[in-house]
Design a protein around this nucleic acid. Structure first.
Length: 552
RNA sequence: UGCCUGAUAGUAUAAUGGUAGUACGACGGUUUUUGGUACCGUUUGUCUAGGUUCGAAUCCUGGUCGGGCAACCA
């Protein structure tokens, strides 16, 4: 164990267990999603924790689908979950399903009935809720609680055989109706659902509840450390009770605080709503905090793993600043993304003293962060260039290191130019900038002796290719939409997507590949959208560059 | 008015009775053919009131504040 970083509280538990010789030092974790939605960045935290723990302690991790509620689940979700876990860079030991254990779990239930620890209850959901009492008043037993073992056995078999409609009966644990912990007031173990299951089909019409499936599945797999989020703390006594009564492998549950990210929502229910109501395009809309959305946005697996490492693991409720996620992707992409030039908001710049029709080939390294620049590429230079509109000002303020009449800048990997003049249209908009270039200032063999403060990017007008660019901003206008009054959707950011139809890009960008990040110099990191075509290139902005220039 | 949890800079996270540290952010500077990167520096913290102790973020007691729990969801 490295001494470099201190351990989080779960690592401490694991190390204590190993030191104590528990489970012969074996570590087996599991990642247990319900296949009822797409994975999001919060799941990434759990994935990194579970798989990371196993990697660190020579253990393994199972991927187990908690598929005990057929009406909400689907193979579409199973497939996406597998893809996302793999993409994040993890390999599971076994792909398992709670539904694989339905026979076994049924036997567990029968065993408890035989011991008088479970009974069939004919009450309605409302009646059961009422009989449970309140946090301050104990619950009251009903007539069904005292049914004989034989009757319960028969009734439960009949439930399984499909003799009753949905809701007619449930199987309950006979525990303690006065327990201060509401979860112990005779919790439901099985309910009737005549529903088609995505894996078991119509084989079953009764399905176990979470509390009678999760711990049992853990035990069947001999999971040593079952990690879940804080809201399951009150379930732990039940988790332990069932395992204890059944005499099965004693998996242990430990709880950590789930990830909350500001300016977004993280519940599957809310994310589903954003999709179905059309507030976003799909589950993998680049504005979504889903793994697939982040992937399409241009986030890398390494950056997400790094993020999960940095946020830490503790029991305190937290709200992580999305700025940290952005830091992680910038840090990664800065080292890997090739640099290219693209002008998002173009204005024409004419070099009045440059020969008409002449074309020069300029060179630029792919990545200045790499030792050898990661190689270089060529791009054409000519008399007319597209430059960024914001790189020119009619009345430049004091520390404006760009263009304005009389000011000089360097064109990246090309010449220094001086702004002489500009042209306006009838509405007063600047339409053209006239500059003269300094022939002796060519990049690579500059003998001008002139130093300029600013360097701007450009694209040669006759050689430029075009692309569509999509700029994304935070999905919500407030840090925590679900804590605000009213509907969380009232706080959606109306400007979360800004589509720029025509952007001028240097010719080489026409060869961009999907999934390969690129930095548009001075503008940010971009990646080709998964639905981009050769006819119509579409780039997504992953994240802006940090902007240290404060106007004013 | 029940039970369970938690509380350390703006945000996270360490310190496990012995110098409150790290990261991100913010601010300032150096370098720079990206106002990026890199590097340097500055800034801000133990919820509260008592107690134990030579010594408390840490242990004890009371309080305050936050989160969770009464789905045939997970």
């Amino acid at each position: 164990m490295s001494e470099e970083r201190s351990l989080n509280f779960i690592e401490e538990i694991v190390e204590e267990d190993i030191a104590a010789g528990k489970n012969d030092g074996r570590v087996l974790t599991r990642f247990p999603p319900e296949p009822n939605g797409y994975l999001h960045i919060g799941h990434a935290k759990s994935i990194c924790l579970n798989f990371g723990l196993a990697q660190k302690y020579n253990g393994k991790t199972n991927l187990r689908f908690d598929d005990t509620n057929p009406v909400k689940e689907d193979v579409e979700y199973v497939d996406s979950i597998k893809e996302d876990v793999k993409w994040l860079g993890f390999e599971w030991a076994e792909e398992l399903y709670a539904s694989d254990y339905f026979d076994k779990i049924y036997e567990f239930a029968v065993a408890l009935i035989k011991r008088g620890l479970a009974y069939v209850d004919d009450s309605s959901a409302e009646e059961i809720a009422a009989q449970k009492g309140t946090p301050t008043e104990p619950g009251t037993p009903n007539e069904y609680r005292s049914r004989s073992v034989e009757e319960n056995l028969q009734l439960f078999a009949d439930m399984k055989a499909g003799k009753y409609p949905d809701g007619a009966k449930v199987l309950r644990a006979k525990l303690d109706l006065a327990a201060p912990n509401m979860h112990l007031r005779d919790p439901l173990m099985y309910r009737i659902k005549h529903a088609h299951h995505h894996r078991t089909g119509d084989a079953w019409c009764i399905y176990p509840m979470y509390d009678f499936a999760h711990g049992q599945s853990d035990a069947i797999e001999h999971i040593t450390h079952s990690l879940c989020t804080l809201e399951f703390i009150p379930h732990r006594p039940l988790y332990d009770w069932f395992i204890d009564q059944l005499g099965i492998f004693p998996s242990k549950q430990y709880e950590f605080a789930r990830l909350n990210l500001n300016y977004t929502v993280m519940s599957k229910r809310k994310l589903l709503q954003l999709v179905t109501e059309g507030h976003v395009e799909s589950w993998d809309d680049p504005r979504m905090p889903t793994i697939s959305g982040l992937r399409r946005r241009g986030y890398t697996p390494a950056s997400i793993r790094e993020f999960c490492e940095r946020i830490g693991v503790a029991k305190r409720e937290n709200m992580i600043d999305v700025g940290l996620l952005e830091f992680c992707i910038r840090e990664d992409l800065n080292k890997t993304a090739w640099r290219r030039m693209a002008v998002l908001d173009p204005i024409k710049c004419i070099l009045t003293n440059y020969p008409e029709g002449e074309v020069e080939t300029m060179h630029g390294e792919n990545n200045p962060e790499a030792e050898d620049g990661d190689g270089s590429r060529e791009f054409p230079f000519s008399r007319e260039l597209w430059i960024e509109r914001e790189d020119f000002m009619e009345v430049p303020p004091k520390k404006f290191f760009r263009l304005g009449v009389g000011l000089m800048v360097r064109l990246k990997n090309a010449y220094i130019i001086r702004c002489d003049d500009f042209v306006k249209d009838a509405d007063g908009n600047v339409t053209e900038i006239h500059c003269s270039y300094l022939p002796e200032s060519k990049s690579g063999n500059d003998t001008s002796g002139i130093n300029v403060k600013g360097t701007i990017h450009w694209v040669s007008v006759p050689h430029a290719k075009t692309a569509e660019v999509r700029l994304y901003d935070r999905l919500f206008q407030v840090e925590n939409p679900q804590s605000e009054d009213g509907d969380f959707k009232d706080y959606l950011n109306p400007n979360s997507l800004d589509v720029i139809q025509t952007v001028y890009i240097e010719p080489d960008l026409a060869n961009a590949k999907p999934g390969t990040p690129v930095q548009f110099m001075r503008k940010g990191y971009f990646t080709l959208d998964k639905y981009s075509t050769a006819d119509k290139l579409v780039f997504n902005r992953t994240v802006t560059l940090k902007d240290g220039w404060v106007k004013k």
